[in-house]
């Protein structure tokens, strides 16, 4: 049998990245900034969003949420009471329910997103500390929630996720007096894995840090206004997926 070797040298997730770029073009056309928000299940993404988006953001930033879940619309229902546009995206049609959102899933939801009516789209990814970090969806920025109940070692165990984000929300800090966790140790581990990454200590229960998160979201949305070519039309094109993977 004769075999032929075909040289490829291509990232195995290139197909996903190509679709992510197409998403990005659509978001750019509508001048919508997109945040991919990730965490382990139960870290508090939805509750933090509920607190942060209970009042309109400064600067008149209009927010919409794309809610990714394996099944059901429990989180979307909670956010809908905030009177902001919330779109549910279930991954349950995949291999027993995909554990992350990929670019194609987000693409399938684009037509149902009110892009003309929002400035900032928060994509709440499926709760998982591994897979979501691998898949670009066309976002401008990535942030994650890490709750103190998860222990100090999570940055060391999941460096891919912790390095992929430009903001880490250390959540549930109201519980610190009841836990054995050493917060300094957690922050040191975070610094080892992603030196200098921005972090905000939050409690969705007491509201601590929520004002800072709101400011960060407003500033994220206004970044677009400072980019060359935006506003006033689409950005300079889908030449690169940004931010880069690491």
């Amino acid at each position: 049998m004769h075999r032929t070797r075909v040289r490829i040298v291509e990232d195995a997730l290139d197909a996903n990245n190509t679709i992510a770029r197409a998403n990005r073009v659509d978001f750019d056309r509508h001048e919508v900034t997109v945040l991919n928000l990730m965490s382990a299940p139960g870290a508090g993404k939805t509750t933090l969003l509920e607190r942060a988006l209970a009042q309109p953001l400064d600067g008149g930033t209009r927010v919409g949420v794309l809610e990714g879940d394996v099944q059901g619309s429990l989180d979307a229902d909670r956010l809908a009471s905030l009177h902001i546009p919330v779109t549910q995206l279930n991954t349950g049609n995949g291999f027993g329910g995909e554990c992350h959102l990929d670019a194609n899933m987000v693409r399938s939801a684009i037509d149902s997103l009110p892009l003309a009516e929002i400035d900032l789209l928060v994509i709440e990814n499926v709760g998982n500390l591994v897979c979501p970090a691998e898949f670009r969806v066309g976002e401008d920025a990535r942030a994650m929630v890490c709750s103190v109940t998860e222990g100090e070692d999570k940055p060391l165990k999941y460096p891919l996720m912790f390095r992929a984000c430009e903001l880490v929300l250390i959540n549930k800090i109201d519980l610190l007096p009841h836990l054995d966790i050493d917060l300094d140790k957690l922050l040191n581990h975070l610094d080892a894995v992603n030196p200098g990454v921005q972090r905000i200590l939050t409690s969705a229960k007491t509201g601590e840090g929520v004002a800072q998160l709101r400011t960060w979201l407003s500033e994220l949305a206004s970044r677009r206004a400072h980019q060359p070519g935006v506003p006033g039309g689409p950005s300079n094109g889908p030449t690169a997926l940004h931010p880069p993977i690491f």
Binding site: R5, I8, L156
Partner: peptide, 29 residues
């Protein structure tokens, strides 16, 4: 997973290897 420079302490560190998920080649009949 320690990404700060051990020599000067800088956080400006580039990953030069270890991020690959790259198909190099395939062989076909």
């Amino acid at each position: 997973p320690a990404f700060r420079c051990p020599d000067c302490g800088s956080a400006a560190v580039t990953v030069t290897g270890g991020e690959e998920l790259q198909i190099e080649y395939i062989e076909v009949e």
